[in-house]
Nucleic acid binder design. Structure first.
Lengths: 242, 242
DNA sequence: CGTCAGATTGAGCAGCTTCAACGTATGTGG
DNA sequence: CCACATACGTTGAAGCTGCTCAATCTGACG
C-alpha cells in the first residue's frame, strides 16, 4: 500500500482529507520513475519541462546562479515535495533544481495535472496549496535573510527542517539526516562557508544542537525555537476543509 | 468596458487568452469594493479571511514583523494584483498586508474562487499561475538578498517595478510613481534607511535613475538592467497555452 | 599511503548598521 | 501669515557583522 506517492499523501492528509479515489488518481499520475545522481541537475534553468518532478527519495535544492558564479539556493526539498510543480503553469523554469543526494524522482506529466484540474478540483486545490506553501516558505526565508542575524537564521532553518521532516516520519530521537555541506548551507542562508561554520559552532557551544557527520540532533528545542522566533503556522500543517 | 478587473485582465491576457465568458466570471467575482487609508492594514497576520483582496488601485505591501520590531516587506503590490489570493487555500494569513497609499480593494469570496475551480478550470489555472508568479518573485528577491550587493539589489527592484507597472500601463516617459518611503524601501531590501539613501545617491550619481518626489525615472535602462542582472522571464509575461 | 572533499581556524578588511544631528517640505492652529 | 510640528531625506562618524584569503586539519576511500 505504500506506493510512490506515500510521502506526498502523508503531507496532503495533514492538510485535508483525501478520498481513496483521489489517492489512486495521484498514484496513477506518476507515469515514470527516474534516478538522479548526487550533484546532478534534476531540472535546468530555462527548461520547459512537460512533466513535473515529485521527489520520492533524497534531498534536492532549487537554485539560481549569478554571472559572478555566486549561487543562491531558494528552496530545499525533502521526500514528498514536488520540486517543480510550478513549471506546470510557469512553463519556463526560472531556476535549476539540483540533487543534493542521490534522488529518486516520480514524473507527473503536465497533461495529467491539467486533467486533474478539469476532473478533480478538490485534488487540484490541494496541489495548488502545495505551491502556496512553497511561497510561504519563501516569505519566511526572505524575512530571515533580511531581518534575522545569521545565527537566528540558521536556527530557523533547522527548526523548519525538523517540522518538515517530522511530517514524513524522518525525525528519530530529535535527530535528522541532513546530507548537505556547509558550503551548500551558505548558499541557502546567503552566508559564506566560513561564517556558516562559525554559526554552527555557536549553536553547538550553546548546547542547542549536536552534529555528527550528516546527522543533526536538536538538544534544546525550546531555546532553539525561541532564538529563531520560529512558529510553524506558515507550513500549513493543520487540517482544514480546502 | 473598463470594469473593476481591468488591470487584472490586462495582466492575465499577457499570459494566455481569456474568453469573454471568463472575463465576465472574473468581473462578477468581485462582490464588494472597499477603501483602505494609507498606512492601514488591508489584512492582518493571523486573520482567516473569507474573501481575497484584489488591489484595484494603490500600492500595498505584504510584511512580517519580528519581536524586536524589525520589519520585512516580502512583496510589493500594484493595481491588478491579488494581495492574498493564497489565503483561499492557506486559510490563515502568515503575514500582514499594508496599504502603502490609499487603496481601493475588490473583494472576491473564497466560495466564488472555489466555484471557479469547479466550473472554470482554465480560469482557475490562471489564478493559480498568479500565485506562482508571486513565488517566482519571492525567489528572485531571495537571490537578490542573499547574493547581490545592496546597489544591484535596489537596481533589480527598480527594474522589476518598471516591468510590472509597464504591464498595466503605468510607465510614462520612463517614469513611474513610486509612493514609498526610503524606510519602507529598506524594509523591502533588508537594508537600513541610511543605506537605502546612499544606494539611491549612487544610482543617481551614476546617471542610472532620477527621483523627484515620488517620481522615479530610469535614465539608462540598459546599464541599470546590466547592473541588476535583470531578466524578466520570471514574471511570466509571455503568452502560452495554459 | 596519498588524495580529495569538506570542515576548521586566524587575520585583515569591507559593507552595512547604528546613532545622532541636521536639512527640507508640507501642513496646521493661532 | 507666521510659528511650530511632523515626516521624510541627508550627512558624518564609529563600530559590528560577516566576508575574503589562505592555511591547516580531518576522515573516507582507492
Amino acid at each position: 500500500m505504500t506506493g510512490l506517492t506515500h510521502h506526498l499523501v502523508l503531507k496532503l492528509e495533514q492538510r485535508d482529507r483525501l478520498s481513496d479515489h483521489e489517492k489512486r488518481v495521484l498514484e496513477a499520475a506518476v507515469v515514470r520513475v527516474r534516478e538522479v545522481r548526487a550533484d546532478e541537475d534534476i531540472v535546468r534553468e530555462g527548461d520547459r519541462p512537460l512533466e513535473s518532478s515529485l521527489l520520492l527519495d533524497g534531498f534536492a535544492a532549487r537554485y539560481k546562479v549569478l554571472s559572478t558564479g555566486r549561487r543562491q539556493i531558494t528552496a530545499l526539498h525533502v521526500p514528498g515535495d514536488f520540486v517543480d510543480l510550478h513549471s506546470f503553469q510557469l512553463k519556463v523554469m526560472d531556476h535549476g533544481v539540483l540533487a543534493l543526494t542521490p534522488c529518486r524522482i516520480g514524473l507527473v506529466p503536465h497533461a495529467v495535472l491539467e486533467k486533474i484540474t478539469e476532473e478533480h478540483p478538490h485534488l487540484a486545490r490541494l496541489l495548488w496549496l502545495s505551491t502556496l506553501v512553497d511561497g510561504a516558505i519563501h516569505r519566511e526565508w526572505l524575512t530571515a535573510m533580511g531581518r534575522r542575524s545569521a545565527t537566528a537564521h540558521m536556527a530557523h532553518l533547522v527548526c523548519e527542517l525538523f517540522v518538515r521532516l517530522g511530517a514524513i516520519g524522518r525525525v528519530q530521537d530529535s535527530t535528522i539526516q541532513l546530507p548537505i555541506t556547509q558550503s551548500e548551507l551558505g548558499d541557502t542562508l546567503g552566508l559564506s562557508t566560513v561564517h556558516v561554520n562559525r554559526v554552527l559552532q555557536e549553536l553547538r557551544k550553546d548546547g542547542l544542537i549536536r552534529t555528527r557527520g550528516s546527522e543533526l540532533t536538536v538538544l534544546d528545542w525550546e531555546r532553539l525555537q525561541t532564538l529563531a522566533e520560529f512558529t510553524p503556522i506558515y507550513l500549513s500543517m493543520q487540517t482544514e476543509r480546502r
